[in-house]
Amino acid sequence: MLGELLRRTWAMTWKDVTVELRARERINAMLFFAALVLFIFNFALGPDRETLREVAPGLLWLAFLFTGMLGLGRSFQAERENECFEELLLTPGDRESIFFGKLAGNILFMVTAEALILPLFGILYNLDIWGLLPSLALVAFLGTVGFSAIGTLLAAMTAHLRAREVMLPLLLFPLTVPVILGSVRATEAILAGGGLTEVSHWLKLLGGFDVIFLVVCPLAFEFVLEE
């Protein structure tokens, strides 16, 4: 049972990753956008190092989330453009595997972008983050999973809407306030030199959020896909 689910999930993810590796549309756009965001923040806030340092955790997460948003918006693009949502539904097995497959792809793309943003961020804003990378990576991963879980579901939902580009962020950001708050505050504490124990309550919140929506979103996905 579980093995079967994993196998189908993997097939779905592999399909998306292969398509992406061939065209590289999404990941290139995400990486370039991420770099651009870091530049724009600098212009918006001025070169004052102290100010930048103070707002750094917020900036970092805005870069993560906007880049993630960009990727999520395209995650059902291929199916919609080629009108093969129906074919997606015809794939044998549970709908959960489609959801988890898409989700794994989205997490992978977002984590790839974050892996570029984080060092670039450290260099551009002159922050000493290198020793803190494991803790920061943990927070980033927990935040990314929760954000992507709701995001993948909403992306499937908004794929059929008019004005889908506007509706996805409009629905996604209010629902992910706990993720945003938790990730930013935890990152802030870590950058200020606090250990993981100091942010354990935020980590628990992020973990709890992830677990709840990793259970609820695949169940809800069935209702979104049905015709």
Binding site: L171, L175, P178, L181, G182, G208, I212, F213, V216
Partner: peptide, 17 residues
């Protein structure tokens, strides 16, 4: 679907805020 997500989100929002 959105209403269910939104309502489940409320306690988490409370905690976080």
């Amino acid at each position: 679907v959105l209403a269910i997500l939104g309502f489940l989100d409320i306690p988490l929002n409370h905690l976080a805020v």
